[in-house]
Simulated scan of single mutants.
Amino acid sequence: MADSSPTHLVEGEAVAHSDNTSFVTKLDIAGHTMVADEPVDVGGTDTGPSPYGLLSGALAACTAMTLHAYAKMKSLPVTDIRVKVKHEKIHEVDCENCEQDDKAKIDRLERTIWIEGDVDDKARERMMQIADRCPVHRTLTSQIRIVTRAG
């Protein structure tokens, strides 16, 4: 079969390539290259972030960028924004099938935001609300359709 992989990617497009020798996967994300891998404890070599690490990174980066744009637009004296996102699989109290399936878990993304600068409590509270408006947050909390096709 001939390789019909795209040669030029635009924003919103990504290609992953595995040579099937390890979990190390080369990524081209709209012309930006990097690798993904799995941690050593699950058989990877930890040479790059895991897919869930990339997902956490996407939410963290988008949140920081959204807050930066908001602070700039409102001329807030923000000097530093840091966002930590932790992904984990947890048992949810109300999760469907939890009683029947001990392995039933849901994904949880926990986001912690630090905003440095001389920002009053009202502006800080508003920025925390704005964090939920970042595009990646909105995507992750909306209905998603993944369409798979052969290339």
Score class of each variant (00 low, 15 high):
residue 87 H to N: 04
residue 105 K to E: 12
residue 103 K to T: 14
residue 70 Y to G: 07
residue 86 K to T: 15
residue 68 H to T: 10
residue 44 G to K: 01
residue 92 E to D: 15
residue 11 E to I: 15
residue 133 R to C: 11
residue 72 K to E: 10
residue 13 E to H: 10
residue 138 R to G: 06
residue 134 C to G: 02
residue 76 L to E: 01
residue 150 A to T: 00
residue 38 E to G: 06
residue 65 M to T: 05
residue 33 T to P: 15
residue 132 D to H: 09
residue 43 G to T: 09
residue 59 L to V: 01
residue 13 E to Y: 12
residue 138 R to E: 06
residue 60 A to D: 01
residue 23 F to W: 01
residue 76 L to V: 01
residue 113 I to C: 00
residue 82 R to K: 15
residue 62 C to W: 09
residue 78 V to T: 02
residue 51 P to R: 11
residue 140 L to R: 08
residue 112 T to D: 03
residue 126 R to T: 14
residue 117 G to Y: 09
residue 3 D to H: 06
residue 27 L to P: 12
residue 68 H to Y: 12
residue 117 G to A: 02
residue 56 S to R: 02
residue 58 A to Y: 04
residue 69 A to I: 11
residue 117 G to V: 04
residue 48 G to E: 04
residue 61 A to C: 09
residue 21 T to W: 05
residue 90 I to A: 09
residue 110 E to D: 13
residue 84 K to G: 11
residue 59 L to A: 03
residue 35 V to Q: 09
residue 64 A to H: 04
residue 98 C to M: 12
residue 32 H to V: 11
residue 115 I to E: 00
residue 85 V to D: 01
residue 103 K to Y: 11
residue 95 C to E: 13
residue 53 G to P: 02
residue 98 C to P: 11
residue 48 G to A: 00
residue 91 H to Y: 10
residue 22 S to K: 07
residue 6 P to L: 09
residue 78 V to F: 00
residue 31 G to A: 01
residue 31 G to F: 08
residue 130 I to F: 06
residue 14 A to G: 06
residue 79 T to F: 04
residue 95 C to F: 07
residue 37 D to V: 07
residue 61 A to K: 03
residue 110 E to T: 15
residue 109 L to P: 04
residue 92 E to K: 13
residue 145 R to C: 13
residue 85 V to K: 11
residue 75 S to V: 02
residue 119 V to I: 00
residue 144 I to S: 07
residue 92 E to C: 14
residue 74 K to N: 03
residue 51 P to G: 08
residue 78 V to D: 02
residue 135 P to H: 10
residue 10 V to G: 11
residue 148 T to I: 14
residue 100 Q to D: 14
residue 101 D to I: 02
residue 119 V to N: 02
residue 72 K to V: 10
residue 30 A to D: 03
residue 53 G to F: 10
residue 49 P to G: 11
residue 113 I to K: 05
residue 67 L to V: 02
residue 126 R to Q: 00
residue 124 R to A: 01
residue 122 K to H: 08
residue 15 V to W: 13
residue 149 R to D: 06
